[in-house]
Write a protein that binds this DNA or RNA. Structure first.
Lengths: 336, 336
DNA sequence: TTGTAAGCGTTATCAC
DNA sequence: GTGATAACGCTTACAA
């Protein structure tokens, strides 16, 4: 009675197919089995609606084919793109994605990692900020954008090079008074190198530049004040601005336009990330594009072919420049 | 030797704490245990770095505390928001999220559901298009935006009412020649009712309107042609446009602006979804806002408190209207 | 190939 | 509360 309702097991399939249990197991593991047996097993399985129980398998094999991904949020185009790319890449590799978001909360991160340990994931790809627990987890961990320890590989894009590239582009485009704007928590991370690369390039070319960093807890207010203080008779003291993210650029640009500053005529701007309009359209601004797919592939490769011996802790992937209307290049009109 | 490397089990904790195996189990299940015993167990567990093996537990209990979420992609602000909200809500309920994306591919959907069956998830929240497999899966399934069968609950926002609301707003705002634009595959789904509600409201108010639907396989080209054919001397035949999504609105608006049509002066526009600038800023256009959090809560509630008896197959959640600059209301200037 | 059996880590159920 | 033991469904090893 109850048996008829229960989900069928290998045993049931073996009985139904009239073969040994081991044979059924072999069939579902791709082990060599006589074709006639294989056929009978497959038919029986179909008839019974059988499917392997990964929990039993995982318990036995100590392998779950599941990778955890930890991100601060999906409410950010870059993270959403990253999650999407990682998900696709994992699927391609026959792996499942267990996704957690932390909302930038350090306690949530710890709770999350502990939960994942319970869940016996095969590895973690995480964009996290807390030091704790990660080492302790004792499982393959690939960090994004943040070096946690020498033994934990970190995948990031070439933030330093990207900053330099932005400076070079702005200079090529004729800018002479450069400004770098950054918001972000005080958190340390690879992305902070963007300003460094920018500054280095400016110095090298012997050009005037200003670096200005804001704590994003206070929103746009301090930034607006700063810009206003550099706005005289509708003219800005700068003719080229590099923003640490496309999102920041967008906000700054909107403010400047309100003040009748024309972009890119009066001031040219370059952002960072490579955000596209609705993810698939054109870039929302001229930008340094992060290689999202490549980052995803790299993360998945590292975490799934875990190999402590290759301990290159930091992997910087190449970025590219893409015009997007906030610089004075000829940009294809988007009549599309 | 090897034992020292192996992850500790309950047995190890029991030995370390000097208590019975069952006691350890009770501690980790919140069952009543003498406080002295509890303390010893917790200390021993900490010392050993023990954590429950959910795979063993899942096998035994036939319950995995994992809910699968299937979405077409995360490369869409609305889906990303939805995924984010669902993830938060699941976490709040002590559940884990196994996320899969299908890229709108029906075969991927099937493969996905089959995989999830293997994985013994406790339930699925899915925005899928294929009929097959879902019923067969034989597990709690909550569908988003699409009625699959009477026995499968579908959570959606009030698309019909939203369409009507859009019409009402445009009329209130003085529009008299209305157009509804829609793109989308030929797929049937609840979102198709947006046009219906719009049309009904227009008819009821006895106002001229046109419904125009495009297959999104062909991109913007046919839409552009259509609009051009209704553009005479820089004046559009319509003074109010309702678009089936904010994304479509954005594309159309960009095209119209290129043609020097002013928005909202010459034509007012309302979209659907409630997309915000970078997810957290202001709305990108005047829009019918879907209640993403409420949808997430509803989905999680339905799937985790599975109860076949309440078979209200279709749950339409209330939408709201939000001005966003493409209609002639006074909108707060976004100096922020 | 077959049948059998041990074991993965938990939970649940005994009698004590 | 203890201790022992039988499941859960699968993999693996073994002898036949």
């Amino acid at each position: 009675m109850r048996k008829s309702v229960k989900t069928p097991t290998m045993k049931d399939v073996a009985r139904e197919a009239g073969v040994a249990l081991g044979t059924v197991s072999n069939v579902f593991n791709g082990a060599p089995v006589g074709s006639e047996y294989r056929r009978r097993v497959e038919e029986a399985a179909l008839r019974l609606g059988y499917s392997v129980n990964s929990y039993a398998r995982g318990l036995r094999a100590d392998r779950t084919n599941t990778i955890a991904v930890i991100l601060p949020t999906l409410q950010n185009s870059f993270f959403a793109s990253l999650a999407n790319a990682i998900c696709l890449e994992l699927t391609r590799n026959g792996l499942r994605m267990l996704l957690s978001t932390t909302e930038y909360d350090l306690e949530a991160e710890s709770a999350c990692i502990q939960m994942l340990r319970q869940n016996r994931v095969d590895g973690i790809i995480g964009l996290t900020y807390s030091e704790t627990k990660v080492d302790m987890a004792g499982m393959p961990y690939v960090s994004i954008d943040r070096v946690i320890s020498p033994s934990i590989p970190c995948v990031t894009s070439d933030n330093y090079g990207g900053g330099a590239l932005a400076a070079r582009k702005l200079l090529e485009l004729g800018c002479r008074k450069l400004l770098y704007l950054r918001t972000g928590s005080t958190v340390i991370g690879e992305t902070n190198k963007r300003g460094g690369g920018f500054a280095a390039e400016c110095s090298m070319q012997d050009v005037d530049f200003t670096l200005k960093s804001f704590n994003d807890e206070y929103g746009m207010e301090p930034i607006v004040q700063y810009l206003d203080s550099h706005l005289h008779d509708g003219r800005l003291d700068f003719d080229g601005i590099f923003c640490s993210t496309d999102m920041l650029l967008d906000q700054v640009a909107r403010f400047l336009r309100q003040r009748s500053v024309r972009i890119p005529d009066d001031v040219q701007m370059i952002g960072f990330d490579g955000i596209r309009r609705f993810f698939k359209g054109d870039y929302i601004c001229s930008t340094i594009v992060q290689p999202v797919e490549l980052m995803a592939e790299t993360c998945v490769d590292l975490v799934s072919n875990w190999n402590q011996s290759r301990l290159s802790a930091l992997i910087s992937l190449p970025v590219t420049y893409a015009p997007g209307g906030t610089t004075r290049e000829q940009v294809l009109p988007d009549g599309q």
